[in-house]
Design a protein around this nucleic acid. Structure first.
Lengths: 226, 226
DNA sequence: GCATAATATTACATTTTTGTAATGTTATGC
DNA sequence: GCATAACATTACAAAAATGTAATATTATGC
């Protein structure tokens, strides 16, 4: 997780840019949002990204223009994003040195896959099976462990399952019932309290080893992460 | 895993079609390869797929033709695949009722993401975090368990890790060293034999509970699955 | 086909994980 | 603010997982 790939987002819709950035970070990338829409090249040279996400509609000049400008300097892969949902744009994007194209509103999974595909072939980058919780903490699906500042926090199997379930629902509340059904076969009767104890132990581990308290309770509804 | 989504592959290159089919099955889909290139509609009506992967270059009629024919009958999502790598094709594909487009040779991850994105939005299909080993067996990353004919085979944490590592390298040999490095921190000195024992126990579980022996040894090199 | 290094198996002691009972603590509606 | 149900904590016994030693079995080069 040390050498995260750098991605530059060129998108003037601040809300969207922010949202994309959050997801990129959640996926383990380092991301910045370009700010000088009159001179993207400046941002580009400062940040030296491994990949650029380029909106087409921009103030001053459009995405195609900046793509051409960047191509004069570098072969960095560029993925266009566009809300116009316009075949003409798509066609131009494909012809004009862009590496791929996604429509807004896009499926985040698809964006992720495109980014991964491009990084893999451009930099022989090995995509990791990880989910980032915040700056310091991520979960590794293969190891079934958490990592705090890149050092492993060992989780028991049930603990991994809980973390994984909470992470999968991306901050949404997961009911105690849902957790219990996922953890134990419905035919065995397990005390309701067992889940409470599991959560408790997991929280203690998080507090002591990650110095953070990421599991929240919504009384009567369930638990959520964030 | 019961009601797997059905995907029809319309591709006359048998090797490629076979390869795609294998991957689709590995990802948990049910897949068939169309055979009547003079009458794809027959295959379509027989199989009733949830999604069609459509090559553009075909004998008799091209993919665009069949897309139009299918559109007369159904709104089933269609993803074009093409080797021509030709902008003209891409453009036509996009205009002509196809839902997406992938180039050959395509990144399998990308194909997977596109299929998932489309199934998700078309059928509100929840994509599962699973890796299929064969017809009967799959591994679930959230549970960290194997499933044999849809019933859970509980794995210990180390066992899940081994299965996961072997699965990730898709049939390639994984060296004992690599496995040990993944399982234990390099600073603790763990007997070489511990891995052997782990593999042994895992194999016994597979034999007794899954009635299959999927972990192979390549002496001096490592282990692989299949 | 034999030697031998690599891998397998078995059994066992140790450590972890587990579920629950008993007991505390909180949020929420009234 | 009080009652109460929902959740939290602690401690502990039972069960499961783990690592290793001792021993057995294989594949491979010669």
């Amino acid at each position: 997780m040390m050498n995260a790939m750098h991605i530059m987002i060129v998108e003037d819709d601040e809300t969207l840019a922010r949202e994309i950035k959050d997801f990129l970070m959640r996926w383990g990338y380092h991301a910045v949002i370009a700010t000088h829409f009159d001179n993207i090249i400046e941002d580009f040279l400062n940040y030296k990204p491994h990949l650029v996400l380029m909106d087409i509609n921009l103030p001053y000049y459009d995405g195609f223009y900046w793509c051409t400008q960047i191509r004069n300097l570098s072969q960095v892969p560029i993925i266009y994003i566009s809300s116009r949902n316009d075949d003409h744009d798509k066609i131009r994007a494909m012809v004009q040195g862009g590496d791929d194209y996604v429509d807004k509103p896009f499926h985040l999974e698809l964006l992720k896959a495109k980014i991964e595909a491009i990084l893999r072939r451009t930099y022989h980058y090995k995509v990791k099976d990880q989910m980032r919780i915040n700056q310091d903490i991520y979960y590794d699906k293969v190891k079934g462990s958490l990592y705090y500042q890149d050092h492993e926090i060992h989780l028991t199997k049930s603990e991994s399952q809980i973390i994984c379930l909470l992470l999968e629902s991306q901050g949404e509340i997961v009911s105690r019932q849902a957790l219990m059904e996922a953890l134990w076969n419905t035919d065995e009767f397990i005390s309701d309290n067992s889940l409470t104890v599991l959560i408790s132990r997991l929280r203690m581990k998080l507090k002591e080893e990650c110095h953070s308290e990421i599991i929240e309770t919504k009384k009567g509804q369930g638990y959520y992460i964030l």
